[in-house]
Design a protein around this nucleic acid. Structure first.
Lengths: 204, 204
DNA sequence: ACCTTGTGCCGAACAGTGTTCGGTGTCAAG
DNA sequence: CTTGACACCGAACACTGTTCGGCACAAGGT
């Protein structure tokens, strides 16, 4: 008898309903303009009731962001591990950029608020962390001799550059170049290739 | 008490005073939390009076952003044109990242609101436009045989990747990695070198 | 001197935001 | 029946950007 006593014909209620309402509003108008009153109205609550389920607006958005991270991580997980480091890295980059291109509001929601949990490069990365996947891929490229590390430019730094490159293109395209007439999918790939090529041979 | 007549001893009034107040508040707490009432109080005006000088809060921030662009462009102008394309490109990148590192609030103010004026790659870039400077530098590298273009990956695309790389690192460091213990100045340089190296030889 | 015009400025208000508080009504357990 | 917890909400608070009507004063024309 672990069931709710509320009328089962009703649409979902509670946390789930609020999150669904919030997510649909984010997709419609972006995270920055999301209003708690609008969320409450769509979910069938009063504004005050949202605080029974979430500590604050920021906490609500954090839950939404965590879901987005999960979807991005799942997309990373679909890139075969059997690929050679160079090919795998390029596929990871395209997965990242494709995700941002197909879900711009989700993507911006993700990076509008999250700060890294780490405070220093020595701290470990959570397993399944998308950035950690990139680091591991670069490391395997170094181990196999494909990538050429230099003093102060090891796997973490190489992966950081790759991440920043994908991140930079994704944000520019989502925020500043919306509606810009260009084939970003192929441009992004060529740009990523250039960077990875630069990892393969040390800077002359 | 109710002394509301002009006092010539006052430091400055009008647009200049408002912009100065707004800029100091941005440096203190960031652009996103800037309140017009706080600006008005610091500049010695009522909130309503700000609208005599600026159409809206957004318009005020746009003027501030234009000033920041000018400072960034000036920094780009200090990179010698006599340098070889590779060295010049790296210096431009370091200038960009150094500016963002030294003036994070200014930098975020810049990219928090501006969308590109261009709608297609064919449209010309304004002279003095920082991105245009990068494009020109890459073009000279192509002309001199230092950089190796490919189909669909010419000067604009190469420069776009470079810009996105610098932009991505600058934003990550300003927004998500504040307080992160790492020598970003040298990491950034090594990352930029890797990308430029990738431009020099086509992707194998 | 008067009257007009214009300028610079502000108080008050409007509509919106996130958030908190005090209180309902309903339900399960004692 | 009583108790207590829980879900929920109306109203308010302290903010935000913005608009409107009007006040005080300087200049110009007559």
């Amino acid at each position: 008898m672990a069931t709710r006593r509320r009328s089962p014909a009703r649409p979902e209620r509670g946390r789930g309903a609020i999150l669904a309402a919030a997510r649909s509003l984010v997709l419609e108008g972006g995270a920055s303009t999301l209003s708690l009153r609008a969320v409450a109205a769509r979910a069938g609550y009063s504004p005050a009731s949202l605080y029974e389920y979430f500590e604050s607006r920021e906490a609500l958005l954090a839950v939404l962001a965590a879901e987005v991270i999960g979807r991005l991580a799942a997309r990373f997980g679909r890139v075969p591990e059997s690929l050679a480091p160079r090919a795998r890295l390029l596929r990871l980059g395209s997965a990242y950029l494709g995700f941002a291109r197909e879900n711009p509001e989700d993507y911006l929601l993700l990076f509008g608020r999250m700060a890294s949990q780490r405070r220093a490069p020595s701290e470990p990365l959570g397993s399944g962390n998308p950035f950690g996947v990139v680091v591991a891929c670069v490391q395997s490229g170094i181990d196999g001799g494909a990538f050429c590390p230099r003093p102060g430019f090891g796997a973490e730094e190489m992966a950081y550059g790759f991440w920043a490159l994908a991140h930079g293109m994704a944000r520019l395209e989502a925020e500043h170049l919306a509606g810009y007439a260009a084939d970003f999918e192929s441009i992004d790939r060529l740009v990523l290739e250039a960077y990875v090529t630069g990892l393969e041979r040390g800077a002359g």
